[in-house]
Write a protein that binds this DNA or RNA. Structure first.
Length: 440
RNA sequence: GUGGCUGUAGCUCAGUUGGUUAGAGCGUCGGAUUGUGAUUCCGAAGGUCGGGGGUUCGAGACCCCUCAGCCACCCCA
């Protein structure tokens, strides 16, 4: 016998997990579409040269690669951004710009596993490419805002925004511009490891002096209402072209988000967020949950100057972000937001005996025609057993129709949550069920 | 990739200084005069003690290797 098992970092999803997962994905899809983002898909496998050398050395190490039967060097995609770059370079002419797309798909990274970190996981990206407009910057935040709201976090999250130009402007004035990657990476850890360690890291990896590190930390510590922070930033980046431009854009974006009707409490200018990725050049976004700030960002992204420079001479600026599906799911699990349901069908129809199979198939189909999801039990077991099954699965309503009811053209509609039931004409069953599902 | 912790039934865990036939709760399945679950009672099935090797008269307990999970670093979703 072969032992049934899955590879390290790869997972199976049971119905309960998968229902929650699909619900999240459908919500994300709905939000993306509501802004006009169109779906695309790309192959899981790409020529190795497309994927290799795109991220850091780190991503190269994590890349799953092999030689296929035709002798081609191929790799499995490790994110959705590189495939998008290739895709955009290849189809920019026929797509037209700006191009807004979403892409929900699995990616693979051969890195060491940890809680919430797997070798196969799903990304839910949305990007707008071919424009540097403030509108696209603002919309990115609005999409994130809608995502979290629709998923059920209402007012319990904060979108932190920042602008790489402001960070780089400061580094310019401090004469640390050529070390920006190291400095930003260090700043990104501020919340996690504290100012002393960040200062030490900056001195070590970026060769910053104690004074420079101090200035950076002082900058990163800026706090308060958005307007106030903006004011304080002005003198700090004065004289730096990128710094001033970044600050201006930040101001525009914040007021745009407010103009869209988003509560100002949801969006916070936080100069300490940097995002690890080198390729961000403009606005950057992170999202944390009020109840679980420690799990980190559940939706993040930013603007990049030139997405597809590896693949085309055409300049394709863009902005995008991604929903951290797995992280969000584990957060929701922790917060008890994942219902204990193992069936997608709200209605359960027990099978009394084989003689009634015909009428019950008909009844089930009529209910489906009325827009309900109905499971007809497949074996004529004892009613108690069948109801037990329905209860375990999380069906909400049972429609019980035995010989007596069928004879009278009736059925019993039973609310499985409280045990109450009502006997109604078969034609009225759907309406009765709707009443229960509506919660009254 | 580096370092640390862990691995006993489907799940959560007990298993005394190594000592005979490895236990519980939950879950699963079956039953309690065959039409009512979530809240009863009874019963049953289910374990290569992650896998392999070693030490020992004897290993679930000790040692080595390996696989997997968790945590930290790294990086990131």
């Amino acid at each position: 016998m072969i032992q049934p098992r899955t590879l390290k970092g790869f997972r199976d999803y049971l119905p309960q997990a998968m229902l929650a997962r699909e619900h999240l994905i459908e919500t994300a899809r709905g939000v993306y579409r509501s802004y006009g983002f169109a779906p695309i898909d790309t192959p899981a496998l790409e020529y190795l040269e497309i994927l290799a050398g795109k991220g850091s050395d780190e991503t190269d190490k994590q890349l799953y690669k092999f030689t296929d039967a035709g002798g081609r060097e191929v790799g499995m995609r490790f994110d959705l951004t590189v495939p998008l770059a290739r895709f955009a370079a290849q189809y920019a002419q026929q797509l037209g710009l700006p191009f807004k797309r979403y892409h929900i798909a699995s990616v693979w990274r051969g890195e060491n596993t940890q809680r919430g970190r797997y070798r196969e996981f799903m990304q839910c990206d949305f990007d707008t490419i071919g424009t540097e407009s403030q509108a696209s910057d603002i919309e990115t935040a609005l999409v994130i805002h809608d995502l979290l709201t629709k998923i059920g976090f209402a007012d319990a999250f904060t979108i932190q925004v920042n602008h790489r130009g402001v960070l780089n402007g400061l580094l310019e004035t401090l004469d640390l511009a050529d070390q920006s990657t190291h400095v930003l990476r260090a700043i990104d850890k501020l919340a996690k490891i504290g100012p002393e360690k960040v200062a030490a890291e900056m001195q070590e990896t970026a060769g910053a002096s104690i004074e420079q590190a101090g200035e950076v930390l002082q900058f990163a510590a800026l706090e308060g209402p958005n307007e106030q922070v903006l004011e304080q930033l002005k003198p700090m980046v004065a004289g730096s072209e990128v710094g001033e431009a970044g600050l201006a854009r930040l101001e525009e974006v914040l007021s745009g988000i407010a103009a869209a009707g988003v509560s100002p409490e949801r969006v916070k200018l936080d100069v300490s967020i940097a995002r690890g990725l080198d390729y961000y050049t403009g606005m950057i976004y992170e999202t944390t949950l009020a109840q679980l700030p420690d799990i980190g960002s559940v939706a993040s992204g930013g603007r990049y100057d030139n997405l597809a420079q590896m693949f085309t001479k055409q300049k394709l600026p863009g902005i995008g972000a991604s929903l951290g599906l797995d992280r969000l799911l584990s957060a929701m699990e922790e917060l008890g937001m994942v219902p204990e349901v193992r069936t997608p069908a709200e209605v359960f129809v027990p099978l009394f005996n084989e003689e009634l199979l015909g009428p019950l198939l008909k009844l089930s189909n009529d209910l489906r025609s009325a827009g309900l999801r109905v499971e007809l039990y497949n074996e004529p077991k004892k009613l108690g057993k069948q109801l037990q099954y329905a209860d375990k699965r999380g069906h909400r309503v049972a429609v019980i129709a035995g010989p007596d009811e069928i004879e009278a053209g009736e059925c019993q509609v039973k609310n499985l949550a409280d045990g109450s039931s009502a006997t109604v004409k078969l034609e009225a069953a759907a309406g009765e069920i709707e009443k229960i599902l509506a919660g009254k």
